[in-house]
């Protein structure tokens, strides 16, 4: 009783320590968040409802006209579709590859002795991380050269092994191959990072679990599905959301690989279209409306991933497993 009252009193008193603590750890971050995150967001919502050209201080409020125009704009809808495809394919492919590599270098080694990775797994781990250390724009420019129809490394190799049909094949210039080729580049750039992430997660699983599974006769594939994936489920979900957000943007890669949006707009992303409408066509109000849609799509994507995870038996965020 007495102790409780004293505690309440202590809580109420504003000492210098408490005030300064609150200022540094609560007020300051909150202010930064409000100024740099919330306020641009609110501003953007407003601009999305104007006909602002971006080059004058004058604008007219036009309500939802931009959004109506947006959903009748076939180029933007194509970009939206491309982004959805990216947000589905890029995370799945990256995660499957990264998981496979991570399993091989941690628990996929010889089936006798202690549970360990393949011989030389340290080397593979480092090499797979290399692409992540290269800036995205450099990755895009390098691969744009690799894909060059007549001088590119890829067609050179393919023609070199006798596949003459690929001499002069424009990987980024065909509507059918441009998007897959671009997706490959993004995956190539990120697989190493997620390998390292999953390796760290797998290391957190007690080795005894794997040993027990092995004694029970589980093969490598069974081990992956029955032990590794359920145990690192949270990491996989995080990776999925992260990669999805990258895929919903994808601006740098696409701008470097196909600055024009690709054949028949097959690689155009919403962010590219937004940039073009804003700076090339001088329709900032319209472009901001695109930004708002992109933000909503991103939020929906995150919500869907969390929901799917929950429905398939994942635990609620933040609750400790017992």
């Amino acid at each position: 009783m007495l102790g409780g009252r004293r505690a309440a009193k202590r809580r109420g008193r504003l000492t210098f320590d408490r005030v300064s603590f609150m200022a540094v750890f609560l007020v300051l971050p909150l202010a930064i968040f409000a100024i740099f995150v919330i306020s641009p967001f609110v501003q953007a919502l407003y601009y999305a409802m104007t006909d602002w050209t971006g080059f004058s201080p004058d604008m007219r409020f036009i309500g939802l006209e931009n959004f109506v125009k947006l959903f009748g704009d076939d180029v933007f809808l194509r970009a939206l579709l491309n982004n959805v495809v990216l947000a589905i394919v890029v995370p799945i492919v990256t995660i499957v590859l990264a998981l496979a590599i991570a399993s091989m270098v941690t628990v996929g080694g010889p089936s006798t002795g202690t549970v360990r990775g393949l011989r030389g797994s340290g080397f593979y781990r480092i090499v797979s991380f290399f692409p992540y250390t290269v800036p995205a724009i450099a990755i895009g420019l390098i691969w744009a050269q690799v894909y060059d129809p007549s001088r590119g490394l890829l067609n050179g190799l393919l023609a070199g092994v006798g596949l003459d049909g690929f001499a002069d094949f424009p990987w980024l210039g065909r509507a059918t191959t441009a998007l897959p080729a671009s997706i490959f580049v993004i995956v190539w750039g990120f697989v190493g990072f997620y390998t390292v992430l999953f390796v760290a997660a797998i290391k957190g699983i007690p080795a005894e679990t794997y040993e027990a599974a092995r004694l029970d006769g589980a093969g490598r594939l069974r081990t992956v599905f029955s032990i590794t994936i359920p145990q690192i489920r949270d990491s996989v979900r995080t990776a999925y959301v992260y990669l999805g957000i990258i895929a919903l943007d994808a601006f740098i890669y696409m701008q470097a690989l196909n600055p024009t949006g690709g054949p028949e707009y097959s690689t155009l992303t919403m962010s590219q279209q937004l940039y073009m409408v804003a700076f090339r066509k001088g329709q900032f109000g319209y472009a901001t409306a695109m930004g708002v849609v992109l933000a909503v799509v991103t939020l929906m994507f995150a919500a869907i991933v969390f929901l799917a995870d929950r429905l398939t038996g994942g635990r609620a965020d933040g609750k400790e497993r017992t």
Binding site: L45, V241, G291
Partner: peptide, 25 residues
């Protein structure tokens, strides 16, 4: 789990700011 949550929020926030706010900001 706590770290991961922070991580995620950071990810969401950083992705949304440039997306919606950049033109306005």
């Amino acid at each position: 789990p706590f770290n991961r949550r922070l991580f995620l929020r950071g990810a969401l926030a950083t992705s949304l700011v440039p997306v919606a706010g950049v033109l306005a900001a």
